[in-house]
Design a protein around this nucleic acid. Structure first.
Length: 100
DNA sequence: GTTGAGCGT
């Protein structure tokens, strides 16, 4: 059973790879979703990590919660929404024009 | 180019 984790207080210079390495040290990381802005593409400072099991997820919380990353302690906790979200078709939305 | 509680395209 996969468990979704919410990572906060992440440095703006941090990347998805930084989070993946940290969580990979604790358990098996199923997937990682970095909180990047779809408009600017810049990290918002939070991310979602999916662990292979809830046991590893809980362990990762106690192990990685407060871990110093790039000079800032990470805030690891269970995500409020355990439901994954789908990417919006930005390609079809490219037709956004003020209309002259 | 910037900022810092919060739960996403």
């Amino acid at each position: 059973m996969e468990k979704r984790l919410y990572i906060g207080n992440i440095s703006f210079k941090a990347t998805e790879e930084n989070i993946r390495v940290l969580f990979a040290e604790i358990g098996e990381v199923v997937s990682i979703n970095f909180g990047t802005d779809a408009r600017t593409g810049k990290p918002k400072g939070f991310a979602f990590v999916v662990m292979a099991s809830d046991g590893e997820a809980q362990k990762a919380i106690e192990a990685l919660n407060g871990t110093l990353l790039l000079g800032r302690p990470l805030s690891v906790s269970e995500a409020n929404t355990q439901e994954p979200r789908e990417r919006r078709d930005l390609d079809t939305d490219s037709g956004r024009k003020p209309g002259k």
